[in-house]
Structures are given as structure tokens and as C-alpha cells.
Amino acid sequence: MFLLQVVARHAARPWTRAFASESSSSFPPATGVYQVFDRAAKRKQRDRAVSRDAGVGSRTVDYVRDEVADRMMERLLDIRRKFDTIVDLGSGPGHFSKLLEPEKTRKILMIDSSETTLNRDQDEEFEVEVERVHADEENLLDVLPRNSQEAIVSCLSLHWVNDLPGVLVQIKEALKPDGLFLGAMFGGDTLFELRTALQLAEVDREGGISPHISPMTDTKDISNLLSRAGFTLLTVDIDEVRVGYPSMWELLEDLRDMGESNAVVGRRHFLHRDTLAAASAIYKELHGNEDGSIPATFQIIYMIGWKPEPNQPKPLERGSAQTNLKDVL
């Protein structure tokens, strides 16, 4: 009887190929990949953020993404190659794509899961030809054929992806041999001030904590993930963007307008006003600047990886060096 039930349960679940294999230590979840983020809620939050006040609020809070897009562009300009098409995965309204010039690419293909965010800005703001595709970043291979792209970039969207190893594998699969992947994502210490202030406030006022800030990828895991996905010639570096706010309230409002509200599965949908007021007081005392404002840290992980190709430059054979390092250093 028990066996029959088990068989029936397995038959009821359609067999799907998961791009990431599960590690043996975790209990295999029923959905294939462990779900941390509520992607449907995230899409709604981002849609609403752009619709609110006819996009005024959304444009006001472009500062973090524009800054990071600018820094990411420096990294792209270091690569001496002209592309025909660059895919911007999780493009938003095109913070990165708007900076692209005709000398670098002929066309940009923007993919985003939030349709209103994707269509927020007019084509005239771009210097190259634009094509927009409304699709889920987690199912990239549904919209891009394998071995079809020269370059895929992603600027600050991968932190809402449940299956990060799987998406990286899909990016590699969608690239042609010797194709480029350039990405920027929020890393581990992002918003640590807000995280700690809310935790302390919740413990003191309510006697427990709940998730308000997403778990984020650690810097040191990224190179492992990239090489596991099959990229070579990796470059990973980190950077910080620190922004000052008058108080925690402005930070919360701006995060909402960025579409970056909490979307962790199982989050509390309610925060008591006592807890909020307490968090605001703690934030200021614990992290505040001398002038009374408060800082918020956004940690950015930049990553570059290439799809392998036989003619790519490779490290030389061990022991083949002609110069002694001792003489150089």
C-alpha cells in the first residue's frame, strides 16, 4: 500500500530537467530547485513600482542601478571586441543598455520578467537598436537558442533568481563558443545596516526575528558557481556603493520604488509600527553618520566569464616560465 502511494506520487509529478543538480546534503524539495524568492510577487512589485505616480518615483531611484551600470560599462570597454548583438538579461528599463554605443554593438536584446519595467523608457533614449522580450530570466533557454549569442550581460537582476547555478548554466549554453558573460549582482553585505536594525528591533519588541532582507550570494561563492557552470578565464571583483539617506524611512521608500521590496517566500506581510519606529531609532544610533543621516551599503559583485573554445588563450604549462619571479618582485 505504502509503495503504491509512493509510485503514484512520483507519477503525478511531471519529470523536468533541473539545470542545477542538488547537493547531497540538502533534503530534496518537491519543486526541483529550492524556492527562496516568490518570483510572482517580485514581478508584481516591480510592475507596481513603475506604474506608481506614472513612473516618477521609479525614475528618481535609478541612482544605484545607473551607478553600477556605469561601472559595469568600464569593464565592457576593457574588452576589445565589437559585438553584433548583446543580450541584457534582467535589463529593467535598460540602465546598462542605454550606455551602449554603436562602436560596441549593433543591437541590444533586453529580457525582463516585468513588462512595465521593460517598457518604461522610450527607444529614443538608446543609441543602438533595441529589441525587448518579456520573459522569465529563470527560463532563458526558452527564448534563446543554444549556441546563439556572442555576449550576455546582466546588471543587478540575478539576486532575485532562485536557481542561480541553473541560470548561469543556461547563460553558458545560450552563448556561442568564446562568448562573453558579464554580470553585476548584489552581494552578501548589501543593506547589512537595515538587516541588523530590523533584527534588533524585532528581538527587543517582539522577541523573535523574521526574514526582511534576502539572503544574498557570498562573493567567494561566485567564482565557484561560474566555474561549475563551465565558464573559463574568470574575473570576479567586488565594489561598494554607499548611499546616504535622511533616515530609514526614505531608504524604505526608495527600495519600494526600485521594486526591491521583500519577496522572500514565507515573509511576514506585516511589520508593526512599534517595530518600525524602533528599527529607525536603532539604525540611526548603530550606523548613523555624524551629521544625523544614515548610510546604506550596496555591495556589488562583478563577474566576467567566457564560454570555452579551443583557440582561447590558456595558462602556460607549469614550469615553462623564462623569468624568475624573484627578479621581478
Partner: peptide, 12 residues
């Protein structure tokens, strides 16, 4: 708010 924040800071 400051008094409360300072109290938390002392025991954080």
C-alpha cells in the same frame, strides 16, 4: 528615539 537607540547600542 535617541535614548532608546543608545540603550539598544549598549546591549546589542
Amino acid at each position: 528615539a535617541t535614548a532608546y537607540g543608545k540603550c539598544i547600542l549598549a546591549v546589542y
